[in-house]
């Protein structure tokens, strides 16, 4: 398992209307085995921060350490980091031209050079874990959104990551499918996976999160236990936001 340290992270985007400061000098630590949930209004920089952790976005300044290794260091092989940090996207991003099983086995085979039969055995095990073993040979577009997201989680787990990032994993799902995905995530959290999530599922945050972080305007406004954040937040902005969504 792993420890994620975000130190003084800033990320700017050049837009036609000038520079957008998506994340401003923000620090956050996710300890080994911890589950940290980031909440906040859209455009507050939550996803950008998450995407900086595995290098999908290149930080403008600041450092991100994973188990003490600085990912922003030129000498660090960011690909090695990505092998250890799984990511689940809002829009699933499964590969539609591959079967469910091939979606899962591709990275272990191509990146870790795992043998086909080993990879398939692993793939089937993971599918069983997310309750979809009977779907191994179908193509993703034939699955429901909830099923696709569970496959996406299995795909990330196939690389045996030390930590997992979730970027609004249930936001694109119909309400009746959210639970099946959250159940898989809860089980992961119980197993001690280090998890950093952007989500508005307060139920999940209450049940699994060690820490809830409220972000607004590219900055962390408040951090606390879910208990404290949801019942007695200190900042007015946090209160205002929670009033809107709860």
């Amino acid at each position: 398992m792993a420890k994620i340290e975000i130190q003084n992270l800033s990320k700017d985007f050049d837009t036609p209307n000038g520079v957008l400061h998506a994340v401003k000098n923000t620090s956050l630590t996710v300890n080994d085995g911890e589950v940290v949930v980031i909440i906040g209004p859209s455009g507050s920089g939550k996803s950008t921060m998450l995407r900086c952790v595995n290098g999908l976005e290149k930080p403008t300044s600041g450092h991100i350490l994973i188990d003490g290794v600085d990912t922003t260091d030129q000498a660090t092989d960011i690909r090695k980091i990505r092998e250890d940090v799984g990511m689940v996207f809002q829009s699933f991003n499964l590969f539609p031209h591959l079967t469910v099983l091939d979606n899962i086995t591709l990275a272990p085979m191509k990146v870790k050079k795992m043998k086909k039969e080993d990879a398939e055995k692993l793939g089937l095990e993971l599918l069983k874990r997310v309750g979809l073993e009977e779907k191994a040979s179908v193509h993703p577009p034939q699955l429901s959104g909830g099923q696709q997201q569970r496959v996406a989680i299995a795909r990330a787990l196939a690389m045996n990551p030390k930590a997992m990032l979730f970027d609004e994993p249930t936001s694109a799902l119909d309400p009746e499918m959210i639970k099946e995905v959250l159940d898989v995530m809860l089980a992961l959290a119980k197993d001690g996976m280090t998890m950093l999530l952007v989500t508005h599922e307060m139920g999940f945050a209450r049940a699994a999160a060690d820490k809830v972080v409220f972000m607004d305007n590219g900055e962390i406004i408040e951090t606390g236990t879910p208990e404290k954040m949801f019942t007695s937040p200190e900042s007015d902005r946090t209160k205002d936001f929670l009033n809107h969504i709860l």
Partner: peptide, 30 residues
Amino acid sequence: IPKGQMEAAIALGLTRGQAFRYIILPQTVK
């Protein structure tokens, strides 16, 4: 091809070259 396809492949640790070969080009052909 949606940008997420490349991102997902990269996030799994594939190189850009591998991502093109196994993920992007097969979908492009069709």
